[in-house]
Design a protein around this nucleic acid. Structure first.
Lengths: 339, 339
DNA sequence: TTGAAAGCGTTACCAT
DNA sequence: ATGGTAACGCTTTCAA
């Protein structure tokens, strides 16, 4: 079933039928109703490819994910995608995902432009030293950053969680509980969000005149073993920490494993605060959550991000648009006063 | 830059240029070289939309994921996607992902067909009582199942891991170590792979004349708290298990947390075997992995799945195609003889 | 070996 | 309010 056939059935021109279906105002209410009914009855839906060619818009949004980023962001990315995908579907956009080898991103973006595969792209996992945005600007491909690009905050569209503030508050909470030796297990150092979290941690400690101890600060991909190994080493060292601030639930689970294995009790002997992205398969909710955490739904971020990017595509606002989400600080069972 | 402009530059017809670029045999080697060089120089790539319209193929493969499935399969799905996406890219296909509300899958598939959004789809997370495949058959939309549909094994294309065998072997290993009270933490009961794993477990216990204890078998979404809570309850019950067989690393992490919290040592007081999907953010590798596990790379499955689906689209084999992957049984530190 | 021209199924411009 | 028709950029059939 295509437009021509539908039009013949209705004894109308393709033009009129197309207009009726696309909500143009100059169609009589009666005709429109008739067209809509027939379309429904015959199960007609415009061929996406033809429409794309005619309009010049692909009605797709691209997500290009370099493999190294995928390794790290895997679960977070997926949750973000779930939120964004929801919005895309509602607004009639398709979501196209490309996972490419590191270094192939540039050609991936070029191909998106050359072949008109997507109207815009989402930029994931900005680094401290980011360059993708300049390429995208030069390609004139609209994009929105999930996170922020240092130095380009006022020149790009972005949505971010207030990483700095969240970790500053979390660190303050631990300090308020009397902790002075607070270990900090953070993500890979070249990621922008990692730098912001570190800044928050440092600010808090500095506020209270607590000296930084490099032996208590580590960076790594946020895996479970990273948490377990680091915590075990630190807890068995000469001057062990009394609290851990952790960048990811998965790593925090590793930390709590090490704490138990050391014969210590979490929340009593050792405190833990983690950031919680509210991943569906890692629930930390319940009446009183297991982990005290800073929580910010990355799925919600995905929803907003999609809305913002679509706004960019449709309204083409002159000024960059951005949104900063605040994390909730939630008390769970993993924190207590310093012994 | 489009075909017309490129052809003008070369003083050739669009036809010849198109043929040269698409590898048709009737073009002279010299002309082809000239065309290819010019195309590269001018950065020409055929407009995807136009090509799609002309050929009638969308060169896209769809993944429709109902929300409930997404909640559960999130990390596994993402890893699968990474593998499949790799292959799609190599073969010139785009990956389109739609995450839809439960019950909207039908219309999602219908729309894919009506609007010609994808040439084929991947079917994820088959249930014990699965119906999607009948819809897809009636829509004449090619598909490949990741997993198997009971009763339709010979009538559909699929790739699966030998869940039954993996869990049978794992249970046998525990039995060989002298364990008789083996708890089994499995996924949600309506999933096909869950049923197969259960069958493997039951077969093994039956082989050795060990009676099933319903108190030791649980089904749930495979979260960390599910593992922790279940293990804690079982370990503090009248007749605790001496070993755990677990369907997912994440749940196994919960189990090991509970074991530690009960003051027991994993691998010595209590044994654990888990299935390991080889997720990048949950490494269980190292010299001696933490968990003894049955391991099967879901990313590899994604790669093979994509290859098979593309084969279906291109070669249209008469017979259904399928592939059964065997899991490796890997000894880690989490198993030991029954006390 | 090359080219002309007819689709592919829409949308959008220009008439009426 | 409705219709005719020219794009959109490619592939493919038919001719030469």
């Amino acid at each position: 079933m295509n437009l021509k056939e539908l039009a013949e059935r209705l004894k109308l021109s393709q033009t009129t039928v197309s207009r009726a279906l696309n909500g143009y105002p100059e169609v009589s209410a009666k005709t429109r109703r008739r067209v809509e009914e027939m379309a429904r009855a015959l199960g007609y839906a415009p061929n996406q490819q033809a429409r794309r060619l005619a309009t010049g818009r692909s009605m797709s949004i691209g997500h290009v994910l370099p493999r190294s980023l995928h390794e790290m962001l895997n679960p977070v990315f997926m949750e973000f995608i779930a939120g964004a995908g929801e919005t895309y579907a509602q607004r009639g956009y398709d979501m196209v995902i490309a996972i490419v080898d590191d270094g192939q991103e540039e050609s991936a973006y070029q191909e998106i432009v050359a072949r008109k595969k997507a109207d815009g792209v989402m930029l994931h996992g900005p680094r401290v030293a980011e360059t993708r945005h300049t390429l995208l600007k030069s390609l004139d491909l609209p994009f929105l950053v999930h996170g922020r690009i240092p130095g380009a905050e006022d020149a790009t569209d972005w949505i971010d969680m207030n990483n700095r503030r969240a970790f500053e508050r979390a660190a303050h909470l631990l300090l308020d509980l009397g902790h002075r030796r607070i270990a900090f297990l953070n993500g890979l150092e070249d990621m922008d969000f990692v730098a912001r979290r570190k800044a928050g941690y440092m600010t808090a400690l500095n506020d209270r005149g607590v000296e930084l101890d490099p032996a208590l600060m580590r960076n790594s991909a946020m895996t479970e073993p990273f948490g377990a190994l680091s915590a075990r080493e630190m807890l068995t060292a000469a001057r062990p920490p009394t609290a851990f601030l952790v960048s990811s639930m998965i790593t925090a689970i590793g930390v709590s494993r090490a704490i138990s294995e050391c014969g210590l009790r979490i929340g009593q002997d050792v405190s833990v605060i983690t950031h919680d992205d509210a991943l569906s398969f890692l629930p930390n909710s319940g009446e009183v959550p297991i982990f005290t955490c800073t929580r910010s739904s990355v799925r919600t971020a995905g929803i907003r991000a999609a809305e913002m990017l679509i706004k960019r595509l449709i309204d083409q606002p002159v000024e960059p648009i951005s949104e900063l989400l605040e994390a909730d600080l939630i008390l769970g069972q993993s924190t207590g006063p310093a012994g």
